[in-house]
Computed example of a mutant assay.
Amino acid sequence: MTQNNKIWAVVPAAGIGSRMGAERPKQYLPLGGETVLEITLQKLLALDRLEGIVVVLNKADTYWQQTTLVNHPKVYTCFGGEARSDSVLNALKFIQEYAGQASEAWVLVHDAARPCVTLEKITMLIDLVLAEKCGAILASPVSDTLKRVNHSNVVAGTEDRSRLWQAHTPQLFTLTKLKSALEYCREKQLPVTDESSAIETVGGRVRILADRRDNIKVTLPEDLGWAEYILKNQASTGDL
């Protein structure tokens, strides 16, 4: 793998997961005998092509030190910021400064709470990006009817879903372009809901790779049971 093709992973894990209503952040909730975050990181560590993984932690985090991966040689940590975009930006600076990684490297950003992503799809995403030399994300086409509502939650219209996709992670971009886009959005105080939205804001090209629908994000309490079912099904069918 050439210098230009070196790949780092960034896993933002500084959130508190307030919607989960649990006693600890959702990334540290138990899932199949481990934690959500441990399973997510193990998926990424199975990729030989990664130089390393930067896990972005909350400064008040008291759980990371209890994980099984705290001393893994390819797992690094840094502190997050106020928003997800700030946390990712901190990780990019870490990769550049501490790890001494050249700006031409690629960065794979993946949600801590998406433990059901498959290695097959991550590998396909990497192959697509390296072949076309442009950023790309995993996403799935919207299948449900989407309603637009007013402030009183009354339906105001129905959206055309024919060209709508639901963004997933990982999302893969060059370190230089992603860092520049995030810095621009922060300077202009523009909203950043995912890494792709920052790249889009500065006019960057982003490809979509169709993802499996079972790459869910654990957000609500009922998602844990669904994620455990998916992981067991993936293990039984070999879709890891």
Rank of each mutant, 00 (worst) to 15 (best):
T62A: 11
T77Q: 12
S87I: 00
E82S: 04
A99N: 11
T62F: 01
A91V: 06
E51G: 14
N71E: 13
T68D: 09
C78S: 11
H110S: 13
L92W: 02
D111W: 07
H72A: 11
A105Q: 15
Y76M: 14
N71M: 10
L57Q: 08
G100Y: 00
Q101L: 11
L108M: 15
Y76T: 14
F94S: 02
R49N: 11
S85R: 09
W64I: 02
S87P: 06
E97Q: 12
V70H: 10
Q65C: 01
V107H: 14
V56L: 01
C78L: 10
E51C: 13
L50F: 06
Y63L: 10
K93P: 05
L57S: 05
S85K: 10
G52A: 07
Q96N: 11
A91Q: 05
W64M: 02
D61C: 03
E104L: 09
E97L: 03
A83G: 00
G52V: 05
G100V: 06
E82N: 06
N90V: 01
H110F: 11
D86Q: 02
W64C: 03
N58F: 04
A91K: 07
Q96C: 09
F79M: 09
D111H: 13
A60M: 06
A102Q: 15
K74I: 10
F79V: 08
S87M: 02
V56P: 02
Q96I: 05
G81Q: 07
A83N: 03
R84F: 05
D111K: 07
I95M: 02
Y98N: 14
K74L: 15
V56E: 00
D86H: 12
T67Y: 02
L89S: 08
N71R: 13
D61E: 02
Y63R: 07
Y76I: 13
C78E: 10
A60H: 12
E97H: 07
L69D: 08
A60N: 12
H110Q: 12
G81K: 04
I95R: 04
T68I: 00
F79Q: 12
E97R: 00
G80P: 09
D86V: 01
S103L: 15
A112G: 09
G100F: 00
T77D: 11
G80I: 04
L50Y: 10
